[in-house]
């Protein structure tokens, strides 16, 4: 979603003018185990992982993220075929129904960051804002690590 549209959408969500806005307060989503895999400073891309839990009573639709140091932050999925080949494909959005816990983890789903203007180092904590089509952004510090927490 373009930044200008996102600002408009967030303003409307804040004013409760979009469907679902009033049913999705900020504390209805829980983000756990959020981290980015440490990569070399020249790496063109890096991946983020997290667990998202919908504690609310309405479905939400995750559609991407915004990250200060990445020109692009998209949801991706690794699909393994019967012959063992791996193929990555984009996810337009991921729906979380009430009570759903969504895990983004290595080799399955991940947040792909590309067009990196800066590559954070292991040990740093960087803000990543998950974005939704029917919910305000959910921002949190992701720790840069060599392996999963």
């Amino acid at each position: 979603m373009p930044p200008t549209l996102r600002v408009l959408r967030d303003a409307l969500l804040g004013a409760g003018l979009l469907a679902g806005a009033t049913s999705a307060p900020a504390d209805d989503l829980t983000l756990d185990n959020a981290w980015l895999r440490a990569v070399p400073p020249v790496a063109p891309a890096m991946a983020g992982y997290f667990e998202l839990y919908n504690r609310g009573n309405r479905s939400v639709r995750l559609d991407g993220a915004e990250v200060r140091f990445a020109g692009s932050a998209v949801l991706r999925e690794t699909v393994v075929s019967k012959d063992g080949q791996r193929r990555e494909r984009g996810l337009e959005e991921v729906r979380l129904d009430p009570g759903d816990r969504l895990r983004f983890r290595r080799g399955r789903r991940f947040l792909q960051l590309t067009a990196l203007t800066d590559v954070p180092r292991a040990g740093q904590r960087v803000e990543v804002c998950l974005t939704f089509t029917n919910h305000g952004d959910l921002c949190a510090d992701f720790e840069v690590r060599h392996s999963a927490p």
């Binding site: 895999r37 990569v39 020249v42 790496a43 063109p44 891309a45 890096m46 991946a47 991706r76 690794t78 791996r86 990555e88 290595r106 080799g107 991940f110 792909q112 960051l113 590309t114 060599h146 392996s147």
Partner: peptide
């Protein structure tokens, strides 16, 4: 390949 964000750096690690 180095543009691979998920599997490749994890495997190299």
């Amino acid at each position: 390949y180095t543009h691979c964000p998920d599997i490749c750096p994890a495997t190299l690690a």
